[in-house]
Lab assay of single mutants.
Amino acid sequence: MDSLVVLVLCLSCLLLLSLWRQSSGRGKLPPGPTPLPVIGNILQIGIKDISKSLTNLSKVYGPVFTLYFGLKPIVVLHGYEAVKEALIDLGEEFSGRGIFPLAERANRGFGIVFSNGKKWKEIRRFSLMTLRNFGMGKRSIEDRVQEEARCLVEELRKTKASPCDPTFILGCAPCNVICSIIFHKRFDYKDQQFLNLMEKLNENIKILSSPWIQICNNFSPIIDYFPGTHNKLLKNVAFMKSYILEKVKEHQESMDMNNPQDFIDCFLMKMEKEKHNQPSEFTIESLENTAVDLFGAGTETTSTTLRYALLLLLKHPEVTAKVQEEIERVIGRNRSPCMQDRSHMPYTDAVVHEVQRYIDLLPTSLPHAVTCDIKFRNYLIPKGTTILISLTSVLHDNKEFPNPEMFDPHHFLDEGGNFKKSKYFMPFSAGKRICVGEALAGMELFLFLTSILQNFNLKSLVDPKNLDTTPVVNGFASVPPFYQLCFIPV
């Protein structure tokens, strides 16, 4: 009986604490739906499609509103004006990374994606500088992407125009580009180590996009005490870190300090320079996690976009025909596509942009946080508050993009057929937390897609009208449904 009384008292205290925290903070924060004790607004949000729920709530509470995930307040920004004001106009104040408990377990605050403060700034600055020195957006990395595009075309030829699921092959190409940047090595598509790495990356994007992960991140005790797919994700990350550590040891034994070959060499050189400046942010643990982040951000996002792009091109054969006509006119058949071609191919450029806009790969991006107490639109948001960005509300804005739910390359073309930029184009987020590999991803999408369409016609196994382009999961990332196609050599 005594234990029951204690339990009831504990629960009562928890409920009172929950109510007090919510009521004391709500006077400062933007308005929002009334949260339930302990669980907050979790029942009012469709976990399978958070973005749709945010759109519905914005119609009631406006472009800036507050939700509670458990006891934790989260300020939501919906629509271009609110997102721009926060991420661009007040970029420094909104540059923090929001709480992501599962990532905390995986990387302990290291790396480039989930770190904060001085650690994040130094690692991000170093990573950007190193990638630029190796030619991100310049010639040397373009050579690597072109080489991988040629290998991709050869792998597709091996399908002999038979029906195939493109998931694996389209994942190999961007993964190999990242391998060449980090390890100075590309792998054969049949290499077992490479296959294991690909498998872990593919599993992780599916797990991260599941409703279960949303629950884990908002009720963090689940991570330590409950079984579930989150444990598989943590094991996959541990596998990748151990693999990278092996490569780091190989580099330490063979590195030429006067001739760095890749990202690992550059990081080890930085560690050597910083060894007298303790404590340094440049450690082996930081290198492991930064490399894992580059793999995660640079492989599955690009391969998922490529997979979605081919599905949309199957669905819209008239678009595919126009792209192939432009390829034939500008590039021809006797040389590989290059980035200089893009400025002469406005329709193809528009298609690449429209694919990214339409699929809305990361509907709410990753959570941000404010780095200080900030007054925002007459609300006071306390330091450390998590900020949720609705990228969907920007990419699918119906004023900027008429009929935003329709796939239409003319969203990025003017009346004369010239490519038209849009400030609403934010597939990689915006501001200080914009994806480090934005330029690389854009290069890969253009070169891989043009190389495929230069060499193959795409054949659907069903009537294009019957192809479903609805994402199968739409949590962290929008993942396309399973499909097969035939690559018919031109």
Results as ranks from 00 to 15, higher is better:
residue 4 L to K: 07
residue 5 V to H: 13
residue 6 V to E: 09
residue 6 V to M: 15
residue 7 L to V: 13
residue 7 L to S: 11
residue 7 L to M: 13
residue 8 V to P: 14
residue 8 V to K: 12
residue 11 L to D: 02
residue 13 C to A: 14
residue 13 C to K: 13
residue 17 L to D: 15
residue 18 S to V: 15
residue 21 R to C: 14
residue 22 Q to R: 14
residue 22 Q to A: 13
residue 23 S to D: 11
residue 24 S to H: 13
residue 25 G to S: 06
residue 26 R to Q: 11
residue 26 R to N: 12
residue 28 K to D: 13
residue 29 L to K: 04
residue 29 L to G: 02
residue 32 G to H: 02
residue 33 P to L: 03
residue 35 P to D: 01
residue 36 L to A: 09
residue 36 L to P: 02
residue 36 L to G: 04
residue 38 V to R: 03
residue 41 N to E: 04
residue 42 I to K: 07
residue 43 L to F: 14
residue 44 Q to A: 10
residue 47 I to M: 13
residue 48 K to S: 12
residue 48 K to N: 12
residue 48 K to P: 10
residue 49 D to H: 07
residue 50 I to T: 10
residue 51 S to D: 10
residue 51 S to L: 11
residue 52 K to I: 09
residue 52 K to P: 08
residue 53 S to E: 11
residue 54 L to V: 14
residue 56 N to V: 11
residue 58 S to N: 11
residue 60 V to P: 04
residue 60 V to S: 12
residue 61 Y to I: 02
residue 62 G to N: 02
residue 62 G to T: 02
residue 63 P to M: 05
residue 63 P to F: 03
residue 63 P to S: 13
residue 65 F to R: 00
residue 66 T to S: 06
residue 66 T to N: 01
residue 67 L to V: 15
residue 67 L to W: 07
residue 67 L to K: 02
residue 67 L to E: 00
residue 68 Y to S: 06
residue 69 F to D: 04
residue 73 P to L: 03
residue 74 I to H: 07
residue 75 V to R: 00
residue 76 V to N: 03
residue 77 L to V: 14
residue 78 H to R: 09
residue 78 H to S: 15
residue 79 G to H: 05
residue 80 Y to E: 11
residue 81 E to W: 07
residue 81 E to S: 11
residue 81 E to R: 07
residue 86 A to Q: 03
residue 86 A to N: 05
residue 87 L to V: 15
residue 89 D to N: 11
residue 89 D to Y: 08
residue 90 L to Y: 14
residue 90 L to S: 15
residue 92 E to C: 08
residue 92 E to G: 13
residue 95 S to R: 09
residue 97 R to A: 06
residue 98 G to I: 06
residue 99 I to S: 15
residue 99 I to H: 15
residue 101 P to V: 08
residue 103 A to Q: 15
residue 104 E to F: 15
residue 107 N to L: 07
residue 109 G to V: 05
residue 110 F to G: 08
residue 110 F to Y: 15
residue 110 F to D: 11
residue 113 V to D: 01
residue 117 G to F: 06
residue 117 G to N: 12
residue 119 K to F: 03
residue 122 E to F: 04
residue 123 I to D: 09
residue 123 I to L: 10
residue 123 I to R: 08
residue 123 I to F: 06
residue 124 R to N: 05
residue 126 F to G: 04
residue 126 F to H: 11
residue 127 S to Q: 06
residue 128 L to R: 12
residue 132 R to G: 06
residue 132 R to D: 00
residue 134 F to Q: 12
residue 136 M to K: 09
residue 136 M to D: 09
residue 136 M to C: 12
residue 136 M to H: 10
residue 137 G to H: 08
residue 138 K to W: 11
residue 138 K to G: 13
residue 139 R to I: 12
residue 139 R to G: 10
residue 140 S to G: 09
residue 140 S to E: 10
residue 144 R to G: 03
residue 146 Q to C: 10
residue 146 Q to S: 09
residue 146 Q to N: 06
residue 146 Q to R: 15
residue 152 L to I: 05
residue 152 L to E: 01
residue 155 E to K: 02
residue 158 K to I: 04
residue 158 K to D: 06
residue 161 A to I: 02
residue 163 P to E: 06
residue 164 C to Q: 08
residue 164 C to G: 01
residue 165 D to Y: 01
residue 165 D to Q: 01
residue 166 P to S: 00
residue 167 T to L: 01
residue 167 T to R: 07
residue 168 F to R: 09
residue 175 C to L: 12
residue 183 F to Y: 03
residue 183 F to G: 03
residue 185 K to C: 05
residue 185 K to R: 12
residue 188 D to Y: 03
residue 188 D to R: 04
residue 190 K to P: 02
residue 191 D to M: 01
residue 191 D to E: 06
residue 192 Q to H: 11
residue 193 Q to W: 09
residue 193 Q to V: 13
residue 194 F to L: 12
residue 195 L to S: 06
residue 197 L to S: 01
residue 198 M to L: 11
residue 199 E to C: 08
residue 199 E to H: 13
residue 201 L to T: 08
residue 202 N to R: 12
residue 202 N to I: 05
residue 204 N to G: 04
residue 205 I to L: 08
residue 206 K to F: 03
residue 206 K to D: 06
residue 208 L to W: 12
residue 208 L to Y: 08
residue 209 S to K: 15
residue 213 I to A: 15
residue 214 Q to F: 11
residue 216 C to N: 09
residue 219 F to N: 07
residue 221 P to H: 11
residue 221 P to Q: 12
residue 221 P to A: 10
residue 223 I to P: 13
residue 223 I to V: 12
residue 223 I to F: 15
residue 223 I to Y: 15
residue 225 Y to M: 11
residue 227 P to Q: 08
residue 229 T to F: 13
residue 230 H to M: 12
residue 230 H to N: 10
residue 233 L to D: 03
residue 233 L to I: 12
residue 235 K to A: 11
residue 244 I to A: 05
residue 244 I to M: 10
residue 246 E to V: 05
residue 246 E to G: 08
residue 247 K to T: 07
residue 248 V to D: 02
residue 248 V to L: 05
residue 248 V to E: 03
residue 252 Q to Y: 10
residue 255 M to N: 11
residue 257 M to C: 14
residue 257 M to L: 13
residue 257 M to D: 14
residue 259 N to R: 10
residue 260 P to L: 05
residue 263 F to E: 02
residue 266 C to Q: 10
residue 268 L to Y: 04
residue 271 M to K: 07
residue 272 E to L: 08
residue 277 N to I: 10
residue 277 N to Q: 11
residue 278 Q to F: 10
residue 279 P to H: 15
residue 283 T to C: 12
residue 285 E to V: 04
residue 285 E to M: 05
residue 285 E to P: 06
residue 285 E to F: 04
residue 286 S to A: 15
residue 286 S to Y: 05
residue 287 L to V: 03
residue 287 L to R: 02
residue 288 E to N: 06
residue 288 E to D: 05
residue 291 A to R: 01
residue 291 A to T: 07
residue 292 V to Q: 04
residue 292 V to N: 05
residue 294 L to C: 03
residue 296 G to V: 12
residue 296 G to T: 11
residue 299 T to K: 07
residue 301 T to N: 03
residue 302 T to A: 09
residue 303 S to F: 01
residue 304 T to C: 07
residue 307 R to L: 00
residue 308 Y to P: 00
residue 311 L to E: 00
residue 311 L to N: 02
residue 314 L to G: 03
residue 314 L to C: 06
residue 317 P to M: 05
residue 318 E to L: 09
residue 319 V to S: 06
residue 321 A to M: 10
residue 324 Q to K: 14
residue 325 E to R: 13
residue 326 E to M: 01
residue 326 E to P: 01
residue 327 I to M: 05
residue 328 E to N: 15
residue 328 E to C: 14
residue 331 I to A: 05
residue 332 G to V: 05
residue 333 R to D: 08
residue 334 N to R: 13
residue 335 R to H: 08
residue 337 P to D: 00
residue 337 P to E: 00
residue 337 P to W: 01
residue 339 M to A: 05
residue 340 Q to Y: 09
residue 340 Q to D: 13
residue 343 S to H: 14
residue 343 S to D: 11
residue 344 H to S: 14
residue 346 P to H: 09
residue 347 Y to A: 02
residue 348 T to Q: 02
residue 348 T to D: 01
residue 349 D to L: 15
residue 349 D to Y: 15
residue 354 E to V: 01
residue 354 E to H: 00
residue 357 R to C: 00
residue 358 Y to V: 08
residue 358 Y to P: 00
residue 358 Y to R: 03
residue 358 Y to N: 03
residue 359 I to E: 06
residue 360 D to G: 09
residue 362 L to S: 12
residue 363 P to L: 00
residue 363 P to F: 02
residue 363 P to T: 02
residue 363 P to A: 05
residue 364 T to I: 11
residue 366 L to H: 02
residue 367 P to E: 09
residue 367 P to T: 15
residue 367 P to D: 06
residue 369 A to R: 14
residue 370 V to S: 13
residue 371 T to M: 07
residue 371 T to Y: 05
residue 372 C to T: 15
residue 372 C to L: 06
residue 373 D to R: 03
residue 374 I to M: 13
residue 374 I to P: 02
residue 376 F to C: 09
residue 377 R to L: 04
residue 377 R to M: 07
residue 378 N to A: 03
residue 382 P to V: 03
residue 383 K to I: 04
residue 385 T to V: 04
residue 385 T to R: 02
residue 388 L to P: 00
residue 389 I to H: 03
residue 389 I to N: 04
residue 389 I to D: 02
residue 390 S to H: 13
residue 391 L to V: 09
residue 391 L to M: 13
residue 391 L to Q: 10
residue 391 L to S: 08
residue 392 T to F: 08
residue 393 S to A: 07
residue 394 V to T: 11
residue 395 L to S: 08
residue 395 L to C: 09
residue 395 L to N: 13
residue 397 D to R: 03
residue 398 N to P: 15
residue 398 N to R: 12
residue 401 F to Y: 10
residue 404 P to S: 10
residue 404 P to F: 06
residue 404 P to D: 06
residue 407 F to I: 01
residue 409 P to I: 04
residue 409 P to Y: 01
residue 410 H to S: 14
residue 410 H to E: 14
residue 412 F to Q: 02
residue 414 D to V: 03
residue 416 G to V: 14
residue 418 N to I: 06
residue 421 K to A: 15
residue 423 K to H: 09
residue 425 F to R: 03
residue 426 M to I: 12
residue 426 M to N: 06
residue 427 P to T: 07
residue 427 P to G: 06
residue 427 P to L: 03
residue 428 F to Y: 10
residue 429 S to H: 03
residue 430 A to E: 09
residue 433 R to M: 00
residue 433 R to L: 04
residue 434 I to T: 15
residue 436 V to R: 02
residue 438 E to H: 11
residue 438 E to I: 07
residue 438 E to T: 13
residue 439 A to L: 14
residue 443 M to P: 02
residue 445 L to W: 01
residue 445 L to Q: 09
residue 446 F to Q: 01
residue 449 L to S: 05
residue 449 L to R: 00
residue 449 L to N: 00
residue 450 T to Y: 00
residue 453 L to E: 00
residue 453 L to V: 05
residue 453 L to N: 02
residue 453 L to T: 03
residue 456 F to N: 02
residue 458 L to Q: 00
residue 459 K to T: 07
residue 460 S to F: 00
residue 461 L to G: 06
residue 461 L to N: 12
residue 461 L to H: 10
residue 462 V to S: 08
residue 462 V to L: 07
residue 462 V to I: 13
residue 462 V to D: 10
residue 463 D to I: 04
residue 464 P to R: 05
residue 466 N to Y: 10
residue 466 N to V: 13
residue 467 L to Y: 03
residue 475 G to K: 05
residue 476 F to V: 15
residue 478 S to G: 06
residue 479 V to T: 12
residue 479 V to D: 08
residue 481 P to T: 02
residue 483 Y to V: 02
residue 483 Y to Q: 01
residue 483 Y to K: 00
residue 485 L to A: 07
residue 485 L to R: 00
residue 486 C to M: 12
residue 487 F to S: 00
residue 487 F to K: 00
